[in-house]
Amino acid sequence: MSNTPPSSLQLILDRRHDTAAARIAAWGKVMSASGRVEVAEADADGFEGRFLARTLGEVRVMQVASKRFRFERSPKMAANMVRDHLLVNVVEAGRIEGRIAERAIRAEAGALVLSRMATPMDVVLDGVSWLALIIPKDILDRHMIWRRSLDGRVFAPGSAPALLLAAHMRALLALPDPVPPAETELVARSSLALLSTSLGAAPRTGPASNVDGPDVAQLVRRFIFEHLRDPELDVAMICARFSLSRSSLYRLMGERSDIAGLIRDLRLRGAKRDILSGHFADRPIEEIGRRWGLSDERSFRRAFVRAFGQSPSHLRRSVRAGVPLALQSSLGVEDELERWFTGL
Rank of each mutant, 00 (worst) to 15 (best):
A188R: 13
V37R: 09
E72V: 15
A26C: 09
R256F: 00
E336A: 14
G158S: 09
A20E: 13
L56C: 11
Q218R: 15
A53W: 11
S66D: 12
A193Y: 10
L112D: 06
S277D: 08
P312E: 13
P284I: 07
D215P: 01
V128S: 05
L9I: 08
P312M: 09
A25P: 00
A104T: 14
A132Y: 02
S198T: 11
L199S: 02
N210T: 12
E287K: 10
K137H: 15
F71S: 03
G46M: 01
A26M: 10
R291A: 13
E286C: 07
Q310H: 08
E287R: 13
R170Y: 03
I259S: 00
R16V: 03
S277M: 08
A271H: 12
I100F: 00
H279E: 15
R54H: 14
G110E: 11
S245R: 03
L175Y: 05
S247T: 12
P136V: 07
S8Y: 08
E102K: 13
D230H: 11
R283Y: 07
D212V: 09
A193L: 14
R106V: 15
A208G: 15
L172I: 03
P75F: 03
I24A: 03
P161H: 04
P178R: 06
L268K: 13
G332P: 06
A104W: 06
W146S: 05
R241L: 02
L294A: 08
L249H: 03
E286G: 09
A118C: 13
V128L: 04
K272Y: 06
R204M: 14
G127A: 05
G49Y: 02
R15F: 01
F341D: 02
S129Q: 14
M121Q: 15
R316L: 15
D234Y: 06
D177K: 05
V59R: 06
A26K: 08
V59S: 08
H85S: 06
I145M: 12
V211M: 07
G289K: 11
R103H: 12
E183M: 14
L172G: 01
G206M: 04
R83L: 15
V305K: 10
V30H: 00
L249M: 09
E287S: 11
L244Q: 06
A132L: 11
M237C: 12
G152A: 07
L252K: 04
L315G: 03
S198I: 05
A171V: 01
G261D: 04
R273C: 02
R73F: 02
R320Q: 11
I12C: 05
T342E: 10
L150G: 04
T205S: 10
A22D: 12
A25M: 05
I238W: 03
R116H: 09
G332C: 05
A101H: 13
D234H: 13
L276P: 06
R99I: 11
P214K: 03
F300Q: 06
F280H: 15
V220A: 00
R298A: 14
I263G: 01
R320N: 07
N210M: 06
A162K: 01
S245Q: 10
S2Y: 12
V124M: 07
L192F: 06
L172S: 02
G322F: 10
R267S: 08
A20M: 08
E336F: 04
L325M: 10
E41A: 15
S248L: 02
V64T: 12
M77H: 02
W340C: 01
R99W: 07
L56R: 09
I145C: 05
I96K: 04
R339M: 15
R148F: 02
L344M: 15
W146E: 13
G289Q: 10
I259W: 00
A79F: 00
I238A: 03
